[in-house]
Design a protein around this nucleic acid. Sequence first.
DNA 1: CTCACCAAAACTGTTGACAGTTTGCAGATC
DNA 2: GATCTGCAAACTGTCAACAGTTTTGGTGAG
Lengths: 235, 235
Amino acid sequence: MNATAIEPIALTSLAEEAFVKLVQVITSGAYSPGQRLSESELARQLGISRGPLREALGRLEGRLVTRTPRIGIRVIDFRPEEVSQLFLVREALEGMAARLAADSMTAAEIDSLRAMLDQHGRQADISAGEAYHQGIGDDDFHFAIIKGARCEHLQRLLLDEVYYQLRLHRLRASTQPGRAQAAFGEHKEILGALVSRNPDAAEGCMRRHIRNARLNALSSLQGLAERSEAGQRRA
Amino acid sequence: MNATAIEPIALTSLAEEAFVKLVQVITSGAYSPGQRLSESELARQLGISRGPLREALGRLEGRLVTRTPRIGIRVIDFRPEEVSQLFLVREALEGMAARLAADSMTAAEIDSLRAMLDQHGRQADISAGEAYHQGIGDDDFHFAIIKGARCEHLQRLLLDEVYYQLRLHRLRASTQPGRAQAAFGEHKEILGALVSRNPDAAEGCMRRHIRNARLNALSSLQGLAERSEAGQRRA
DNA sequence: CTCACCAAAACTGTTGACAGTTTGCAGATC
DNA sequence: GATCTGCAAACTGTCAACAGTTTTGGTGAG
């Protein structure tokens, strides 16, 4: 499809490039949460002036960085409550995505999804599945469904507003024992619903899946808080 | 509460002010969809330089304006398909909001919601309810529930990503006959679910309500397209 | 009269510089 | 010795100007 749709040669602005680069750098965990970033420093590192950089930072505001007038930029540092809210939003949006995908995905796409899961299953056997839930494979599965929903607006919101922050959260949180296997099973249920073209089931399975992921994240965060508290008491 | 919590004197940047002003101007329908906007012209009108203005425009990108590299800014002009997608996103997010609100809203808030509906009922009698569905009252009802969900992330997404565009759409679309009364009835159902603190029912009612609003919007758009087509044939 | 071509005007993307504020430190004071 | 005061460096918010591109209007050929 779209063999060689003529698009203008990738003319992208410095602001756009800076935005992509910043997302990449921040979600890779290069900075610690709450760390202050200097505009001049960032501009120098990126080799651009502060104008385009400020535009890029504006687009990241409230997503990956927080801005305080006359103070500056800090890497976002979310409280447990905010992580939970992030998963609630994700549950709503991705549930809808699964519903739409059950109708809109092509048979080829569903086959490819099944192949993906088969491969994950083999990998999970090898690595005991521990890394699965947080891994790239998980994102691929969800991304394929989001794409299959054929809804640009939904796709943009999920990628820009949810997944960036989610990746940042995953850097700091661990998975509960057995969560990886459970997630893999839930993925298979979702696939089943898509195969049988059942929108209600697809949405239901997806929402249950993400609700479980939220509970896992909350447990993990609680554990983190307790360890940190104990550490502070000891100090 | 918070008798005189000392907050820093409202220090807001020109970019922020420009953003608010632009949202206000565009959603009031001052420009026609697809109309090109000149940065210099806008900057002159706002009395600021292009730097802060570009920052504000960047935040509006993909929401109320579209940006083409080296060409400029245009007021967003959505296709029927995109309007439908907007309502799907709204259904997902606001359904979740209603679910959360069923648990989180205070009794006082629910009472206030009931009072609001009573008032709407009286107004609807007077104006035959025609203006209700598109009116301010409708937004107030929904906003109260969104606020009652106690979920900042959800609230931000709904206001920034959905309602701005929705208001712009409403400027061009009409309501189908009888839609106002139906919407009013659906609001009462939603209120009932909140009163009985039933999250499932609240989400279900809200989603049905927004699904109906979407169908109404689509019918309206189809009528619009047909009229436009007929107009072009005549010309 | 229509179409292609060309030059001028307008506009966007970007930069460097300036003004006012915040922050950190050194010296003075209790 | 601890705390407060004042200054200097760094930084953010803002602006005006420059380079390259797009658009527009006019001119001439067919």
